[in-house]
Design a protein around this nucleic acid. Structure first.
Lengths: 204, 204
DNA sequence: GTCTATACAACGATAGAC
DNA sequence: GTCTATCGTTGTATAGAC
């Protein structure tokens, strides 16, 4: 029995190594993380890691890719909702996902290694921000078809909406800074949705 | 003669080391960069570096701080311009600054090291995104006073405007990915400005 | 202050036994 | 496949001469 996608046999040790790599790489960064640390975290010897992965580089890539494969269900919304409700529900889910410590750690790691691992940066973008943007564009397109929104280009509108969600709150979070009083996830979503509706809502 | 702010004597070698540190750290990241590389780039011996900086950590901090001290003139705009002109000029300057390779490299580096160097993350935010947001909020406040815009909170409006500028274009740039056809710096600025005016422009 | 030379630890990767 | 033990390299930091 083999995995249909990768053609690789399932292996408990292999999974343990990947999980350990996630913990160590996300915590320490690529260069600082040592294979000894990963081995210790996984409870195996270093030689065992090299039996499953040819190099530190390959282990790193396999770990990031395995993280990217489990995402993007935030854009499933009830089509009976109006524009404000739809954008609020979707925006809240997306921002909650973005602000999770693990998500932030992946962002930090992929960004910092994007120059030395360009293929990884592309894989991350496609399965992360790229997919997210496509899903949101589709939802906005539906709203436009139902005359709930008036947008010329749903992709651009999705881009602007995501941008308004990923504001100072996200910047401060990814820098690990404390959040100022009064600005919360809820107010950030509400401000973005309000602005979308003021700009693209049906004229009164 | 001493530097008024730091109380430190100016030193040609010290400046050369800082400049070399900028090149090496921004290119290779904190952990991968070696003091040997910095010494070679600066044309001094490793011992000389340790005569000026007590550790790799301190050199890194001094370098980032010296980079942060020279920024933020993008928000100086002619007060005779209307809202669209003002936002377009300011938005274009900000996005040009954000997309510069050196700016992107600083973002990548500070983000990736923010957990291990929290004081640095704060210094970067204050002198970078924080100052930028404050300047834009002030300009928006002026526009609101002149009835060119109708905003309830100029800080929130500034936040939303910056968010709409820092969209997919910025994300792809910081990941080192090629830009899709048709989406340029100019169209990104125009879309953000259009949306701001649709949402907050004076009602017709 | 600046150099050469080096101490000392940690790293990625491998050899060989089982 | 998995382990223990180790190789060769590279890293930060320092000693001592000038």
């Amino acid at each position: 029995m083999q995995d249909g996608k990768t053609g690789r046999k399932p292996s408990a040790k292999r999974d343990a190594i990947l999980e350990a790599a996630r913990i160590v790489f996300l915590d320490q960064g690529y260069a600082s993380a040592s294979m000894d640390s990963v081995a210790a975290e996984a409870g195996v010897s270093k030689a065992t890691i090299y039996a499953h992965f040819t190099s530190k580089d390959e282990l790193f890539g396999a770990m990031i890719r395995s993280r990217c494969e489990r995402n993007a269900t935030f854009a499933v919304v009830d089509s009976a909702l109006n524009a404000r409700q739809t954008l609020t529900v979707m925006g809240r889910r997306l921002l909650e996902l973005l602000l999770q410590p693990q998500t932030l750690a992946v962002y930090r790691l992929v960004m910092s290694e994007s120059e030395r691992h360009p293929d990884l940066a592309k894989a991350f973008y496609d399965s992360g921000p790229g997919t997210g943007k496509a899903l949101i564009a589709q939802v906005i397109d539906d709203l436009a078809r139902r005359k709930e929104l008036e947008v010329a280009d749903s992709w651009i509108a999705a881009d602007l909406f995501v941008g308004m969600l990923r504001t100072d709150l996200f910047m401060r979070s990814i820098l690990g800074l404390p959040q100022p009083e009064g600005r919360t996830l809820d107010t950030a979503v509400a401000d973005a949705v309000d602005t979308m509706l003021r700009a693209f809502g049906p004229r009164g």
